[in-house]
Amino acid sequence: MGKTILIVDDSFSLRQTVGIALKSAGYEVVEASDGRDALGKLDGRKYNLIISDVNMPNMDGLSFVRAAKQLPNYKFTPIIMLTTEGDETKKQEGKAAGVRAWVLKPFQPPVLLDAVAKLVLP
């Protein structure tokens, strides 16, 4: 059965490229442009993974993750956060929110696909 991944990032080109990579690996992809948009997409459909950036307008990645963890349908959904070198404090906050998987930006698609494969059952 198709596995669905929600990708949350304010960069259109990043979503697009990551989307192409994920789709070519056989995943279905739902895109959201920031935390608020993403929250609206947690509408009961099943995601096998959420990939979210930290820095975004409207609602940042950590607020989104904390909100998602409150929802029964998503509280245990695996999350990969895209982070940058300077985000050490954010990383601590994320850890408190239950995030363990970090992928350092910038990355190349194979690196992300690898991380995805570690978290999503085939």
């Binding site: 304010d10 990043l14 490229t17 940058t84 930006k105 910038p106 990355f107 190349q108």
Partner: peptide
């Protein structure tokens, strides 16, 4: 954010 996003996309 602009710098962050450019870096992220270019990294891909």
């Amino acid at each position: 954010r602009a710098a962050h996003t450019i870096k992220g996309s270019a990294g891909l």
